[in-house]
Computed example of a mutant assay.
Amino acid sequence: MNIKNIAIVGGTHGNEYTGIYLIKRMQRTQFQAKWNGLEIALMIGNPRAYEQCSRFVDTDLNRAFKNEDLLNIELPGYEANRAKVINQAIGPKGSSRTELIIDMHTTTANMGVTIILVNDHPYNFQLAAYIKHKLPNCFIYYTSAKSYTGEADHPFLNSIAPYGFLLEVGPIANGIVRHDILEQTSMAIGAALEFVSKTNTGECPMPTNSLEVYEHVRTVAFPIDAADNINGFIHRELQDSDYQPLQKGDPIFETIEGDTICFADEGVFYPVFINEAAYYYKKIAFSLTQKRVMKIKNTL
Protein backbone atom coordinates (compact mmCIF):
# COMPACT_ATOMS: atom_id res chain seq x y z
CA MET A 1 0.00 0.00 0.00
CA ASN A 2 1.27 3.46 -0.93
CA ILE A 3 -0.33 6.49 0.72
CA LYS A 4 0.53 9.93 -0.61
CA ASN A 5 -2.27 12.41 0.21
CA ILE A 6 -2.64 13.25 3.91
CA ALA A 7 -4.59 15.92 5.77
CA ILE A 8 -3.71 17.11 9.27
CA VAL A 9 -6.49 19.07 10.96
CA GLY A 10 -6.45 21.09 14.16
CA GLY A 11 -9.19 23.12 15.78
CA THR A 12 -12.12 20.98 14.75
CA HIS A 13 -13.25 22.18 18.16
CA GLY A 14 -12.36 25.86 18.42
CA ASN A 15 -11.40 25.87 22.11
CA GLU A 16 -8.86 23.04 21.72
CA TYR A 17 -5.82 25.18 21.00
CA THR A 18 -3.10 22.53 20.77
CA GLY A 19 -3.94 21.43 17.24
CA ILE A 20 -4.39 25.02 16.07
CA TYR A 21 -0.97 26.05 17.37
CA LEU A 22 0.65 22.99 15.79
CA ILE A 23 -0.98 23.77 12.44
CA LYS A 24 0.40 27.30 12.67
CA ARG A 25 3.84 25.93 13.54
CA MET A 26 3.74 23.52 10.60
CA GLN A 27 2.68 26.31 8.25
CA ARG A 28 5.52 28.59 9.38
CA THR A 29 8.26 25.97 9.19
CA GLN A 30 9.40 23.55 6.50
CA PHE A 31 7.22 20.80 7.91
CA GLN A 32 6.06 19.30 4.62
CA ALA A 33 9.58 19.28 3.21
CA LYS A 34 10.66 16.86 5.95
CA TRP A 35 8.26 14.24 4.60
CA ASN A 36 9.47 13.84 1.06
CA GLY A 37 6.94 12.09 -1.16
CA LEU A 38 3.92 12.95 0.97
CA GLU A 39 1.39 15.60 0.01
CA ILE A 40 0.26 17.04 3.35
CA ALA A 41 -2.67 19.46 3.58
CA LEU A 42 -2.85 21.51 6.80
CA MET A 43 -6.19 22.85 7.97
CA ILE A 44 -7.83 24.63 10.89
CA GLY A 45 -11.19 22.92 11.10
CA ASN A 46 -13.40 25.51 12.79
CA PRO A 47 -11.83 28.97 12.50
CA ARG A 48 -14.95 30.85 13.60
CA ALA A 49 -15.25 28.84 16.82
CA TYR A 50 -11.51 29.42 17.39
CA GLU A 51 -12.08 33.18 17.16
CA GLN A 52 -14.73 32.82 19.88
CA CYS A 53 -12.75 30.30 21.99
CA SER A 54 -15.78 28.02 21.88
CA ARG A 55 -16.17 24.34 21.04
CA PHE A 56 -18.54 25.23 18.22
CA VAL A 57 -20.74 28.06 16.96
CA ASP A 58 -24.04 26.28 16.29
CA THR A 59 -23.42 22.53 16.43
CA ASP A 60 -20.48 20.19 16.99
CA LEU A 61 -18.43 20.12 13.78
CA ASN A 62 -17.07 16.68 14.64
CA ARG A 63 -20.62 15.29 14.52
CA ALA A 64 -21.42 16.83 11.12
CA PHE A 65 -19.86 14.36 8.67
CA LYS A 66 -22.53 11.73 8.20
CA ASN A 67 -23.23 11.27 4.49
CA GLU A 68 -26.87 12.29 4.80
CA ASP A 69 -25.87 15.54 6.52
CA LEU A 70 -23.17 16.34 3.97
CA LEU A 71 -25.72 15.89 1.19
CA ASN A 72 -28.43 17.94 2.93
CA ILE A 73 -28.07 21.51 1.66
CA GLU A 74 -30.96 22.67 3.86
CA LEU A 75 -29.24 21.96 7.17
CA PRO A 76 -28.87 25.30 9.01
CA GLY A 77 -25.88 26.59 10.93
CA TYR A 78 -22.22 27.41 10.49
CA GLU A 79 -20.84 23.93 11.20
CA ALA A 80 -23.23 22.21 8.79
CA ASN A 81 -21.88 24.43 6.02
CA ARG A 82 -18.29 24.21 7.23
CA ALA A 83 -18.45 20.40 7.09
CA LYS A 84 -19.44 20.61 3.42
CA VAL A 85 -16.52 22.97 2.71
CA ILE A 86 -14.06 20.60 4.42
CA ASN A 87 -15.55 17.59 2.65
CA GLN A 88 -15.12 19.33 -0.69
CA ALA A 89 -11.56 20.38 0.14
CA ILE A 90 -10.17 17.04 1.35
CA GLY A 91 -12.91 14.55 0.40
CA PRO A 92 -15.44 13.77 -0.76
CA LYS A 93 -16.40 11.13 1.78
CA GLY A 94 -16.69 7.72 0.17
CA SER A 95 -14.30 8.54 -2.68
CA SER A 96 -11.82 10.80 -0.94
CA ARG A 97 -8.70 11.99 -2.74
CA THR A 98 -7.20 12.37 0.74
CA GLU A 99 -6.21 8.88 1.83
CA LEU A 100 -5.32 9.52 5.47
CA ILE A 101 -6.54 12.13 7.97
CA ILE A 102 -5.10 12.98 11.38
CA ASP A 103 -7.57 15.07 13.39
CA MET A 104 -5.97 16.61 16.48
CA HIS A 105 -7.97 17.07 19.68
CA THR A 106 -7.42 17.62 23.38
CA THR A 107 -9.44 16.46 26.36
CA THR A 108 -9.95 17.67 29.92
CA ALA A 109 -9.95 13.99 30.97
CA ASN A 110 -6.86 12.11 32.15
CA MET A 111 -6.45 10.11 28.93
CA GLY A 112 -2.80 10.69 28.10
CA VAL A 113 -2.13 10.16 24.40
CA THR A 114 -5.08 8.31 22.89
CA ILE A 115 -5.34 7.12 19.28
CA ILE A 116 -9.02 6.81 18.30
CA LEU A 117 -9.80 4.55 15.36
CA VAL A 118 -13.21 4.77 13.69
CA ASN A 119 -13.03 1.78 11.35
CA ASP A 120 -11.45 -1.66 11.42
CA HIS A 121 -9.21 -1.47 8.37
CA PRO A 122 -6.02 -3.46 9.11
CA TYR A 123 -3.82 -0.56 7.98
CA ASN A 124 -5.23 1.64 10.76
CA PHE A 125 -4.44 -0.96 13.40
CA GLN A 126 -0.94 -1.37 11.97
CA LEU A 127 -0.52 2.40 12.11
CA ALA A 128 -1.76 2.48 15.72
CA ALA A 129 0.56 -0.38 16.67
CA TYR A 130 3.53 1.53 15.25
CA ILE A 131 2.62 4.69 17.17
CA LYS A 132 2.33 2.64 20.36
CA HIS A 133 5.71 1.09 19.58
CA LYS A 134 7.16 4.62 19.49
CA LEU A 135 5.03 5.95 22.37
CA PRO A 136 4.54 2.93 24.65
CA ASN A 137 2.28 4.75 27.10
CA CYS A 138 -0.34 5.69 24.53
CA PHE A 139 -3.77 4.05 24.38
CA ILE A 140 -5.75 2.74 21.42
CA TYR A 141 -9.47 3.45 21.56
CA TYR A 142 -11.66 1.85 18.88
CA THR A 143 -15.19 3.06 18.27
CA SER A 144 -17.15 1.69 15.35
CA ALA A 145 -20.01 3.73 13.91
CA LYS A 146 -22.49 1.10 15.09
CA SER A 147 -21.23 1.14 18.68
CA TYR A 148 -21.11 4.94 18.74
CA THR A 149 -24.34 5.93 16.97
CA GLY A 150 -26.14 2.66 16.32
CA GLU A 151 -25.85 3.37 12.61
CA ALA A 152 -23.39 2.42 9.88
CA ASP A 153 -22.07 5.92 9.16
CA HIS A 154 -19.66 7.79 11.43
CA PRO A 155 -20.19 11.54 12.00
CA PHE A 156 -16.49 12.31 12.64
CA LEU A 157 -14.32 14.46 10.38
CA ASN A 158 -11.66 11.81 9.93
CA SER A 159 -14.27 9.39 8.59
CA ILE A 160 -13.96 11.29 5.30
CA ALA A 161 -10.88 9.19 4.48
CA PRO A 162 -10.43 5.43 4.87
CA TYR A 163 -7.19 5.72 6.86
CA GLY A 164 -6.04 7.75 9.82
CA PHE A 165 -7.19 8.51 13.34
CA LEU A 166 -8.51 11.04 15.79
CA LEU A 167 -5.86 12.04 18.32
CA GLU A 168 -6.87 12.96 21.88
CA VAL A 169 -4.26 14.24 24.35
CA GLY A 170 -4.90 15.34 27.91
CA PRO A 171 -5.63 16.37 30.52
CA ILE A 172 -5.63 20.02 29.57
CA ALA A 173 -8.13 22.82 30.13
CA ASN A 174 -9.92 24.25 27.13
CA GLY A 175 -8.66 27.50 25.65
CA ILE A 176 -5.01 27.15 26.71
CA VAL A 177 -1.74 25.72 25.37
CA ARG A 178 0.70 23.57 27.34
CA HIS A 179 4.17 22.74 26.09
CA ASP A 180 4.01 19.09 27.21
CA ILE A 181 0.69 18.50 25.44
CA LEU A 182 2.05 20.15 22.29
CA GLU A 183 5.08 17.89 22.34
CA GLN A 184 3.11 14.69 22.96
CA THR A 185 0.76 15.56 20.10
CA SER A 186 3.67 16.37 17.81
CA MET A 187 5.43 13.09 18.68
CA ALA A 188 2.32 11.07 17.83
CA ILE A 189 1.98 12.81 14.48
CA GLY A 190 5.67 12.29 13.74
CA ALA A 191 5.36 8.57 14.50
CA ALA A 192 2.33 8.30 12.21
CA LEU A 193 4.05 10.03 9.30
CA GLU A 194 7.17 7.94 9.86
CA PHE A 195 5.05 4.80 9.56
CA VAL A 196 3.47 6.01 6.32
CA SER A 197 6.82 6.98 4.83
CA LYS A 198 8.43 3.68 5.74
CA THR A 199 5.56 1.52 4.54
CA ASN A 200 5.49 3.45 1.28
CA THR A 201 9.07 2.32 0.63
CA GLY A 202 8.63 -1.17 2.04
CA GLU A 203 10.94 -0.47 4.99
CA CYS A 204 8.53 -0.75 7.91
CA PRO A 205 8.54 -4.00 9.87
CA MET A 206 5.45 -4.99 11.83
CA PRO A 207 6.28 -4.12 15.46
CA THR A 208 3.73 -6.66 16.71
CA ASN A 209 1.01 -8.96 15.41
CA SER A 210 -1.40 -8.07 18.21
CA LEU A 211 -2.63 -4.85 19.78
CA GLU A 212 -4.34 -3.99 23.06
CA VAL A 213 -7.48 -2.03 22.21
CA TYR A 214 -10.15 -0.34 24.31
CA GLU A 215 -13.41 -0.78 22.41
CA HIS A 216 -16.32 1.62 22.95
CA VAL A 217 -19.40 0.11 24.58
CA ARG A 218 -21.65 3.01 25.63
CA THR A 219 -21.79 6.34 27.43
CA VAL A 220 -22.86 6.83 31.05
CA ALA A 221 -25.02 9.82 31.99
CA PHE A 222 -24.79 11.94 35.12
CA PRO A 223 -27.59 11.49 37.66
CA ILE A 224 -30.37 14.02 37.08
CA ASP A 225 -33.15 15.49 39.21
CA ALA A 226 -36.87 15.86 38.50
CA ALA A 227 -36.18 19.04 36.51
CA ASP A 228 -33.70 17.17 34.26
CA ASN A 229 -30.68 18.98 35.74
CA ILE A 230 -27.40 17.25 36.63
CA ASN A 231 -27.71 16.23 40.27
CA GLY A 232 -24.26 14.85 41.07
CA PHE A 233 -20.60 14.76 40.23
CA ILE A 234 -17.85 12.24 39.55
CA HIS A 235 -16.87 10.39 42.72
CA ARG A 236 -13.34 11.02 43.98
CA GLU A 237 -12.43 7.34 43.48
CA LEU A 238 -13.35 7.50 39.78
CA GLN A 239 -11.92 10.92 38.98
CA ASP A 240 -8.76 10.74 36.78
CA SER A 241 -9.07 6.93 36.54
CA ASP A 242 -9.36 6.74 32.76
CA TYR A 243 -8.40 3.29 31.42
CA GLN A 244 -8.52 1.81 34.92
CA PRO A 245 -10.83 -1.18 35.61
CA LEU A 246 -14.35 -0.44 36.81
CA GLN A 247 -16.56 -3.16 38.32
CA LYS A 248 -19.95 -3.57 39.93
CA GLY A 249 -20.07 -1.85 43.32
CA ASP A 250 -17.34 0.71 42.57
CA PRO A 251 -18.45 4.28 43.41
CA ILE A 252 -18.96 6.48 40.35
CA PHE A 253 -21.06 9.47 41.50
CA GLU A 254 -21.80 11.50 44.58
CA THR A 255 -25.14 13.29 44.48
CA ILE A 256 -25.64 16.88 45.58
CA GLU A 257 -27.35 15.50 48.67
CA GLY A 258 -24.19 13.51 49.51
CA ASP A 259 -25.34 10.03 48.51
CA THR A 260 -22.96 7.66 46.70
CA ILE A 261 -24.04 5.95 43.46
CA CYS A 262 -22.16 2.78 42.55
CA PHE A 263 -21.58 1.09 39.22
CA ALA A 264 -24.23 -1.56 38.61
CA ASP A 265 -23.10 -3.44 35.48
CA GLU A 266 -21.70 -6.95 35.60
CA GLY A 267 -18.20 -7.48 34.21
CA VAL A 268 -15.06 -5.39 33.99
CA PHE A 269 -15.09 -2.13 32.03
CA TYR A 270 -12.59 0.66 31.45
CA PRO A 271 -13.98 4.21 31.61
CA VAL A 272 -12.65 7.00 29.39
CA PHE A 273 -13.46 10.69 28.93
CA ILE A 274 -14.18 10.83 32.67
CA ASN A 275 -15.63 14.24 33.56
CA GLU A 276 -14.93 15.62 30.08
CA ALA A 277 -15.96 19.28 30.16
CA ALA A 278 -17.24 19.23 26.58
CA TYR A 279 -19.89 16.63 27.35
CA TYR A 280 -21.63 18.36 30.24
CA TYR A 281 -24.20 19.91 27.93
CA LYS A 282 -25.11 16.35 26.89
CA LYS A 283 -25.11 15.23 30.54
CA ILE A 284 -22.51 12.56 29.69
CA ALA A 285 -20.23 11.70 32.61
CA PHE A 286 -17.93 9.19 30.90
CA SER A 287 -17.76 6.43 28.31
CA LEU A 288 -17.30 2.73 28.92
CA THR A 289 -14.91 0.53 26.99
CA GLN A 290 -13.90 -3.10 27.12
CA LYS A 291 -10.28 -4.13 26.74
CA ARG A 292 -9.35 -6.79 24.22
CA VAL A 293 -6.33 -7.92 22.28
CA MET A 294 -6.75 -7.79 18.52
CA LYS A 295 -4.78 -9.82 16.02
CA ILE A 296 -3.38 -7.56 13.31
CA LYS A 297 -3.41 -8.69 9.71
CA ASN A 298 -0.24 -7.84 7.82
CA THR A 299 -1.34 -6.10 4.62
CA LEU A 300 1.90 -4.17 4.06
Rank of each mutant, 00 (worst) to 15 (best):
I3A: 10
I3F: 13
I3Q: 03
I8M: 12
V9P: 09
H13V: 09
H13C: 13
G19K: 08
Y21K: 06
F31L: 03
N36R: 05
L42W: 09
G45N: 12
P47R: 03
Y50W: 08
D58L: 02
D60S: 07
L61K: 01
R63P: 00
D69Q: 09
L70V: 14
N72H: 02
L75H: 01
Y78V: 05
K84I: 10
V85P: 06
N87E: 12
Q88M: 08
A89C: 05
I90W: 10
P92T: 13
G94D: 00
T106M: 06
T106A: 06
T106R: 08
G112Q: 11
V118I: 15
D120F: 13
L127E: 07
A128Y: 03
Y141C: 10
S144F: 03
A145T: 04
S147E: 11
G150E: 12
D153G: 10
P155N: 14
F156C: 12
P171H: 09
N174K: 02
D180P: 00
Q184I: 00
G190A: 11
A191F: 07
E194K: 07
K198V: 00
S210M: 10
Y214V: 00
V220F: 01
F222R: 05
N231T: 09
I234K: 14
H235V: 06
P245H: 01
D250L: 06
F263K: 06
P271C: 02
P271K: 01
V272H: 05
N275Y: 03
N275V: 11
Y280E: 08
R292N: 13
R292Y: 11
V293T: 11
K295V: 12
N298W: 05
L300E: 06
